[in-house]
Nucleic acid binder design. Structure first.
Length: 569
RNA sequence: GGGCCUGUAGCUCAAUUGGUUAGAGCAGGGCGCUCAUAACGCCUUGGUUGGGGGUUCGAGUCCCUCCGGGCCUACCA
């Protein structure tokens, strides 16, 4: 039994996330956490909402709420949806927690003591009407290169050239539309990441087994141009962890807060502290290598846009502190999920969002489709046709129907209890041999977080059950040799329990229904498949479960397709 | 502009890191079965691996070039 710390990238507080966000971090992290728990490992699975930054302040203002109230409400909404998708967090925290405030300030102070923070005075765009400094992308104007009228201050979406907000012609605030913009002097703290370059390079180089997506992004940042640059870790905002506090070794930071990307990863640690406070557990044995965390394996899940912060800035914080914090061991990163020929778009209402998905179908449909189509090697695409075909075939026809045919046949011929008689023959031995091999392959893929391959293997295991039944044909055998037919069905009923156990990480609700139908709560993993297939003994009572997965009709598919199309460009 | 990823059957993806005849699922076609959610099983059609050139005994895999898709480029998160 090993100990595994698992974190999912923390979703931003601003609104409900879409299916692409779900499959980009939380869902695969949940799959891995569930699998490791099922194998008997000790797991700490943490997630949280990322609540600071400009977008949160603006979203709260738009909603007419104080930012604290807005974040509290949205955290509740996201937590509820996470429960709906059966995301099995041990704790779902908040980056605005008191624990994170204390920890973030402690890290900053420690980094300053290590000589890794310097003060920088710079000029930034200030919007008089909005009363705030604006990040570059919140300023729009005409592109000096191509004349595009809605170019952002950081980049022109039309000619893709990178810009500086002062280059824009007729610049305006995207918040208020005001053109009353001016450059103002402001002072910020910078993390001297350049000092950490060699240490980070050595660390990244030692991770030869990481996904190419992860290491290539990290190496690009380490080696591009003059190498890793120092990074500002404070912002001129009200909402965040204050950059001024007792013992802070700098002045002039009054009214400023830490940059969201400085405090957000620290929330991974703070979430464990929140968990400890709520449960009385010991967080240090997960995070402090001097307090028991040296034998923890730490795995992070995230979308590719998060990689630089998890491979460089957060490790710079951890390493730079010189303190015995647990560093990540493996980073599983994902590409993006696109929607029907384009991107998911919150502003255009394009695509399916997490709350909408749950209102259409139970979470297992989404979990299965998303995981079996996870954007691991490249961007993937959601289409309603594919979703309908995959879920109908895999879940309803292959798995759901298998459960139906076995339980209903037994009820009709032997009643609703595991029947007695007969013995395993050649067909049964062959099935066990095949399943054993496939199960070991499935375990290998799950341990390697090779999600698509694991899903293919799991499906093959389901199919093997149908193949066996077809070849064994108990409906024919029962006419001449009822005892032998009983042996076949006894095996098949046990197969349902085994399938529930091994499928549980992908489709927890259906697995629970299968177990309820078999009237057992024996969730033990089939390390010994032969023994596992005899776990439900003769005379063990069961009941025919409700249809596990109903099919998605063509009419539903057409309607949903229309409903979530949004405005096409 | 630069960097990285990617292009394989109608669709979604594999291919043990350069090694037999490029494999699965779905969709299509045929057959079988009748326990089951009009389900299941078996067989089968389908590929100049984006185009071109090169290295090699051998290239989907390595190199060059062109074309297409995507991401990042440090003040969104």
């Amino acid at each position: 039994m090993a100990r595994h710390l698992i974190t999912s990238a923390i979703p931003y507080i601003n609104g409900i996330k879409h299916l692409g966000n779900l499959i980009g971090s939380q869902l695969p992290a949940d799959l891995y956490a569930r699998y490791l728990r099922a194998r008997g490992h000790e797991v700490m699975f943490l997630c949280a909402t990322d609540e600071h930054g400009t977008p949160a302040e603006l979203a709260a203002a738009k909603a007419g709420q104080p930012v604290e109230a807005y974040c509290a409400e949205m955290h509740g909404v996201q937590a509820e949806i996470a429960r709906g998708f059966r995301l099995s967090f041990d704790h779902f925290g908040r980056s605005s927690s008191p624990q994170n405030r204390v920890l973030t300030q402690a890290f900053a102070k420690r980094l300053a003591e290590q000589g890794l923070i310097r003060e920088v005075t710079e000029m930034q765009m200030y919007s008089v009407a909005d009363g705030r400094f604006l990040p570059d992308r919140y300023i729009e104007g005409t592109c000096p290169n191509c004349g595009f009228e809605s170019a952002r201050g950081d980049q022109c979406d039309n000619c893709t050239k990178q810009l500086d907000p002062v280059d824009l012609i007729n610049p305006r605030s995207t918040v208020s539309g005001s053109t009353e913009l001016e450059l103002r002097e402001t002072k910020h703290l910078y993390l001297r990441q350049s000092e950490m370059r060699d240490a980070l390079q050595d660390w990244i180089d030692s991770k030869s087994d990481w996904p190419i997506l992860t290491t290539s992004i990290a190496k690009k940042w380490l080696n591009d141009g003059d190498g890793l640059q120092d990074r500002g870790i404070t912002r001129d905002l009200k909402w965040g962890v204050p950059a001024q506090f007792d013992g802070a070794p700098w002045s002039g930071m009054e009214g400023k807060v830490f940059y969201v990307w400085f405090d957000a990863p620290i929330e991974y640690i703070a979430a464990a502290q929140e968990w400890a406070q709520a449960t009385g557990g010991d967080w240090e044995r997960w995070w402090r290598t001097d307090k028991g965390a040296e034998d923890v394996t730490y795995t992070q899940f995230m979308g590719k846009d998060n990689v630089p912060f998890h491979t460089l800035s957060f490790p710079a914080t951890i390493l730079g502190s010189g303190e015995p914090w647990k560093l990540v061991d493996y980073i599983k990163s994902f590409n993006y999920l696109n929607y029907d020929g384009g991107q998911f778009s919150t502003s255009r209402g394009r695509g399916v969002f997490m709350d909408q998905a749950l209102s259409l179908l139970p979470s297992d449909y989404w979990r299965w489709w998303l995981l079996s189509h996870a954007p691991e090697s490249s961007d993937a695409e959601f289409t309603w046709e594919n979703f309908q075909q995959s879920t109908n075939k895999d879940l309803a026809d292959v798995l759901g129907n298998l459960v139906s045919r076995v339980t209903k046949f037994c009820r009709a011929k032997f009643g609703e209890a595991v029947p007695e008689g007969g013995n395993w023959g050649e067909a049964e031995e062959a099935l066990i041999a095949q399943l054993d091999e496939r199960l070991r392959a499935y375990e290998g893929y799950m341990e390697a977080m090779d999600i698509r391959k694991a899903s293919i293997e799991l499906r093959s295991i389901w199919v093997a059950g149908n193949e066996y039944l077809q070849a064994a044909a108990p409906w024919t055998v029962v006419k001449t040799d009822p005892a032998q037919a009983a042996a076949m069905i006894r095996l098949a009923l046990n197969l349902i329990r085994v399938y529930a156990v091994i499928s549980q990480p992908f489709i927890p609700d259906a697995a629970a229904s299968m177990m309820a139908g078999m009237k057992t709560d024996d969730w033990s993993w089939p390390d010994d498949l032969r023994a596992a297939l005899a776990a439900l003994p003769v005379d063990h009572v069961f009941e025919v479960p409700e249809v596990l997965f109903r099919k998605i009709t063509d009419e539903e598919r057409a309607e949903w397709q229309l409903r979530f199309a949004g405005v096409r460009d």
